[in-house]
Write a protein that binds this DNA or RNA. Sequence first.
DNA 1: TTATTTTTTGTCATAATTGACAATTTATCA
DNA 2: TGATAAATTGTCAATTATGACAAAAAATAA
Lengths: 196, 196
Amino acid sequence: MPRPSLKDQRSDEILDAYLTCVARFGLEGATQERIAAEAGVKRPLLRHYLGNRGQMITALCDHVVLVFDRMTDGADAVLKEAQSYEEVIGLLFAEDIDHDPRLLVAWQALAVSVGDQPDQRDALLNSLERFLQALTRTFQRLSPNRSMEKTRAVAQGVMAILVNLDSLSILSPPQAWRNELRDGAAILLASLEGEG
Amino acid sequence: MPRPSLKDQRSDEILDAYLTCVARFGLEGATQERIAAEAGVKRPLLRHYLGNRGQMITALCDHVVLVFDRMTDGADAVLKEAQSYEEVIGLLFAEDIDHDPRLLVAWQALAVSVGDQPDQRDALLNSLERFLQALTRTFQRLSPNRSMEKTRAVAQGVMAILVNLDSLSILSPPQAWRNELRDGAAILLASLEGEG
DNA sequence: TTATTTTTTGTCATAATTGACAATTTATCA
DNA sequence: TGATAAATTGTCAATTATGACAAAAAATAA
């Protein structure tokens, strides 16, 4: 007899608008007015669905980690098919890739402001570690004879380059930079090739 | 006859406090109250020395670029003495290096919020380009036979790893990550070694 | 000491942001 | 249709942030 609940759907919509605002204005710049406008709802609804400001930040953190993990799973599935490092580079640096540019920006904004809350700190670090392990698994499969240490180091380097590319994209850097960063990742991967 | 002006000194002190607050709370979270408290002055002084909010942001952007360039010059001077890539790695990743952890965090906070103002955008990008060129010069000196393309790509990769390390440091990641990132940079540099 | 300029502080008005809650509307089922 | 529970909206108080300006304090040279 009750009206059907839209809690999950609306919460997701609002969190997505929140994510957009944080990526554009920073965490403190993402006011409830802006979020509500972005989501196309009235401000009191934010409170209704997500709670007060602190609870909203916690919910956003969970949401970012969730989306990040989904992205990792997607990348992992695609990387499983790759048969060469050229293919890996092509997949990771594809221009037309379905890749959310807001994600890492919001990730970093959260990192600076929740660094003191252990739970959220660990959640953010874990989401990175998951992605790192996805990369590492693929590299190990393509170069099974390499030491774990070297494989991890290369994976860290590739991830750093990917993160850097995302951070820079806000400033729309020259295309040459993008190419150079991709080539840098390719050089790193090439170090895993060849015999033992 | 007039009282001696402290404008330059006070402005620098306030900008430094501003930098601290932006690194800790984000650009929008760096309120005048917090800045004044951090600088140990009363709030109206901020306005007196730096102007209104918009002018303060502009001044901060200039200050960050200035400090960044000073850091680049310092790194450049040190790198000039390096005779091997092991030395380069040791210098860039020294634990005890005199290196301001606020700098890149504030750089990124500014990047997301001034992305639309062309002047500040270019200033921020130029400061990165300057550091990139400092790295590139050293790598070219140590490996004069390498192509410019490869040298730049390696420099971009190393810079990405350094930036990433700074961004992560807020979350105090496991020491293993730091080591892996440093090893990743070392692997990149090793690709410049050897003949032709 | 006095004039001059700057620093520094005090204070008020306005706008922005958030918290809280009442009231209304809407959709479902009995 | 009427009851029920949820969604949605309206509104106000409290807190916070900013802008603006007047006034006091301090330092130097004449």
